[in-house]
Write a protein that binds this DNA or RNA. Structure first.
Lengths: 233, 233
DNA sequence: GGCGACGTGGAGGATTCCCTCCGACTCGTC
DNA sequence: GACGAGTCGGAGGGAATCCTCCACGTCGCC
């Protein structure tokens, strides 16, 4: 994480209790609103929902990007636990399965994440999980190939792309149904080498109507139009 | 009675030539800007880029949703050719491959499409390609299963979800590299039943650096910050 | 060429958002 | 309690956006 900087007040919380609470509420609301409206979500509305003045928001996060960065750091911390889990996997292939599943789960769980990640790549390119996390996965990939469990013509980056892809299903609102697990299982089958004995797909296929409903990726505009008439803003 | 021309069908263009040109330019710019900024892209800026007054935009598309609908209809028309192509496929499995590839290609080719589709589901739920197109695919799926080419535990909706998923790779800017074809190949391998002889993956894996670059999904805000440099603090 | 209808552009009021500044309030401590 | 530093909230200027209205071009036909 980036918190290794020698910032004077970092580890401890030298701030007042109410200040910390406000910051916490801001983060919660920011995440919720960014999930709906993207990184361009109104800062004033975030503050409003957090029952906080605008100035408090700006004091905590001088720049919109500072807010995004904070959300990113929090999410990344949650991801850290996954790394340990992977390390404990019995086989390399199991590690890969775990990697794909946990990261996809992580992406799907927080609909704000895609927006935040996309933005982070612009703010601060060439840092983050790509650096150290990918190295672990690369090793896993090499071992899995040697074990004959993973097809030889893919690499760690392919896995990253795939998991991003599966994780994008959360953006469409289908996350809560766990539907993405089906698609992940198919992807894993496409990666597995023996390919003979396939596990059953988890869950059940979506009905067509459900699929359409799941694609509802409600934006702010969307919700407004749903309640009010169709006259835009 | 007003002299309202019957306008028997909307097939003809009873409008003035310059009016049609303006509309055309508006559509082009709208698509470009929506690709960058989402459906909430500024209408004034669309008009500005199209070298057209705002009023002209509003005359052509009274509501933002009318604009979205127009873009949707255009995109859908392009998709129609795919259906014929699929019908001409030699085997059911080939048809499925074609379906997945063409639709993914369609999604990736126009980065505005995900935004438009997402919005369309809100504007006008339960219509569009889902209705008639899905029926064709469902038949294809049934035949492919009987042929023993497609795994039995998936259905047409699963395919739709998968192709949406693969198509989402275009949003991340990776479309131009054709990278998505690799991921699609893996997905297809996960769907194929014999699963013994696998085709080689098309293309080459992305370098880690390229992957990061590909995730750059530039938003308006992004471009601003990129040019404005570190004025943040 | 000339005319009329169709189409155009941009001003402008209302609203929202960004970000800063400063008086008022509250927490933590004595 | 009471004090002071830290924190808060909202006003407010500037800018962007939405959408409408109306005087003014321009196309197409005679």
């Amino acid at each position: 994480m980036t918190s290794s900087e020698p910032t004077p007040q970092d580890g401890a919380q030298p701030r007042r209790r109410d200040a910390r609470q406000n910051r916490e509420r801001l983060i919660v609301e920011a995440r919720a609103l960014i999930a709906q409206n993207g990184v361009d979500a109104s800062l004033e509305e975030i503050a409003r929902r957090a029952d906080v003045g605008v100035a408090t928001l700006y004091r905590n996060f001088p720049t919109r990007d500072d807010l995004v960065r904070a959300l990113y750091d929090i999410a990344l911390a949650e991801l850290a636990t996954v790394r340990d889990e992977i390390a404990a996997a019995p086989t390399a292939w199991a590690g890969i399965e775990l990697y794909m599943e946990r990261v996809a789960e992580w992406l799907v769980a927080d609909p704000a994440l895609p927006h935040i990640l996309k933005r982070m790549e612009v703010i601060d390119p060439g840092s983050g999980k790509g650096t150290e996390f990918q190295a672990v996965i690369a090793g896993l990939v090499a071992r899995a190939k040697k074990d004959g469990a993973l097809r030889a013509d893919v690499d760690a980056v392919d896995l990253a792309v795939l998991v991003t892809m599966v994780g994008s299903l959360g953006t469409h609102g289908g996350g809560h149904t766990g539907q993405w697990r089906r698609q992940l299982a198919i992807v894993l089958d496409g990666l597995r080498l023996p390919a003979t004995d396939r596990p059953r797909l988890p869950g059940r296929p979506l009905a067509a109507r459900e699929f359409q409903a799941a694609v509802h990726g409600l934006t702010r505009r969307a919700k407004r139009a749903a309640s009010g008439a169709g006259s835009g803003r």
